[in-house]
C-alpha cells in the first residue's frame, strides 16, 4: 500500500460560475514512503492547487486522496489531523511569522497539536537544528532575523509538527545561490535522516535534478509525466513543448550525445557530466 495515493483527483475553481476553470484535472498517482518527489510545471499548471489538496486545505471537487489507505476527507471534522501529518510550507513562508520569539513561532504548530510542554520544547530544538538555526536566535524576535534566517525559521515551524510527508512550495524562491544550496542540502539531510517523504515544488530544474528521486510534471492541470528524475530529464524535447527546460548541464550532454559521442542520457549534475566525459576520453585512450 502506498503512503499517499490520489485517484481521479479534480479541483475546479468557482464551480458553476462563468469564471469556472479546472485547476487539477483527473490526477492519479502514488507516492511511497521515503520518496523525494519533485513537482515541476509552469506557473498556473496546477501545482499549488494540487499540494493544497494533499494536506486538506482544499477539498477536491471529485476524486479521493488516501493517506495510509484512508480517505483524508472520511472525517471532515478531523481534517486538522491530516494537516499535521502532511506538513505544507508555502512559498515565501517567512511572511507567516507572527510570534514574539522564534521559538514560540516554531512551537505554534506543535502546540496546536496539543502536545505537552516538554515535547514541544524538544521538537522546537530539533526542528531548529535541522534547518541550521543557531540556538541563540531562538529567543530573538522573528522580525529581527535576516531574510534567509526567517525563511529557515518558518520551515522549522512545519518540520516541528514532525509530519509524515513534508511538502515545500518553492522553498528557495528569492534566495541567492549560497542560501539556496544550504537550504537544499538541509532539506536533503532532513529527508535522509528521518526517512520522511518530501515533496518539492520548484521552478528550478537544477534544484529538482540535484535532490529529487522522482519527478512529477504538471502541464495545463494534467499530470503528464511521473518518473525518475533521470528519465524525466532525458525527455528534454517534450519538456520544452511544455515551456519547461532541462538543467543546462543535461542539455549540453544531450547535444553531445546527438553528435555521436557515447555518453549516458539524462545527466543531472556537473560532477556526473565530468565523470562521463573523462571516462569516455580514458576509454579512447586520450586522457
Amino acid at each position: 500500500m502506498s503512503l499517499l495515493s490520489a485517484r481521479d483527483l479534480v479541483y475546479t475553481y468557482s464551480q458553476g460560475m462563468p469564471t469556472e476553470h479546472i485547476a487539477v484535472d483527473h490526477l492519479d498517482f502514488d507516492i511511497e514512503q521515503g520518496d523525494f518527489v519533485g513537482v515541476i510545471g509552469h506557473t498556473g499548471s496546477g501545482k499549488s492547487t494540487l499540494v493544497q489538496m494533499l494536506n486538506g486545505l482544499l477539498k477536491p471537487t471529485a476524486g479521493t486522496i488516501k493517506l495510509d489507505g484512508v480517505d483524508i476527507w472520511a472525517k471532515p471534522k478531523e481534517i486538522r489531523k491530516i494537516r499535521f501529518r502532511v506538513g505544507l510550507v508555502f512559498q515565501y513562508p517567512e511572511y507567516q511569522l507572527f510570534e514574539e520569539t522564534v521559538a514560540k513561532d516554531i512551537a505554534f504548530g506543535p502546540s496546536n497539536m496539543g502536545l505537552d510542554a516538554e515535547e514541544i520544547e524538544n521538537r522546537v530544538y530539533n526542528a531548529a537544528k535541522f534547518v541550521g538555526l543557531k540556538h541563540e536566535l531562538l529567543e530573538k524576535s522573528p522580525f529581527d532575523l535576516s531574510g534567509g534566517e526567517k525563511r529557515r525559521a518558518a520551515i522549522a515551524g512545519v518540520i516541528a509538527m514532525d509530519p509524515d510527508i513534508l511538502i515545500l512550495d518553492e522553498p528557495c524562491a528569492g534566495l541567492d545561490p549560497v542560501g539556496r544550496d544550504i537550504l537544499l542540502s538541509q532539506i536533503y539531510h532532513y529527508h535522509k535522516e528521518r526517512g520522511n517523504t518530501v515533496i518539492l515544488v520548484s521552478h528550478s530544474m537544477e534544484d529538482v535534478a540535484t535532490v529529487c528521486d522522482r519527478v512529477m510534471v504538471m502541464n495545463h492541470s494534467k499530470l503528464t509525466m511521473f518518473d525518475t528524475a533521470q528519465n524525466i530529464f532525458s525527455r528534454g524535447e517534450e519538456l520544452g513543448k511544455m515551456s519547461l527546460r532541462v538543467p543546462q548541464i543535461t542539455s549540453i550532454v544531450d547535444s553531445l550525445i546527438e553528435e555521436g559521442i557515447p555518453l549516458e542520457k539524462g545527466v543531472l549534475t556537473v560532477d556526473k557530466a565530468v565523470l562521463e566525459i573523462t571516462e569516455f576520453l580514458k576509454k579512447e585512450g586520450r586522457l
Binding site: 545561490p177 549560497v178 537544477e206 538543467p247 543546462q248 548541464i249 549540453i252 556537473v270 560532477d271 557530466a273 565530468v274 566525459i277 573523462t278 576520453l281 586522457l287
Partner: peptide, 20 residues
C-alpha cells in the same frame, strides 16, 4: 566567495582540472 558560475563554465573548468 560562494558565488555561482554557469554550469557550462563549471563543466569546462572541472574538465580542465582533470587534464582535458
Amino acid at each position: 566567495h560562494r558565488l555561482d558560475v554557469p554550469q557550462a563554465t563549471e563543466l569546462c573548468y572541472k574538465l580542465r582540472a582533470c587534464g582535458v
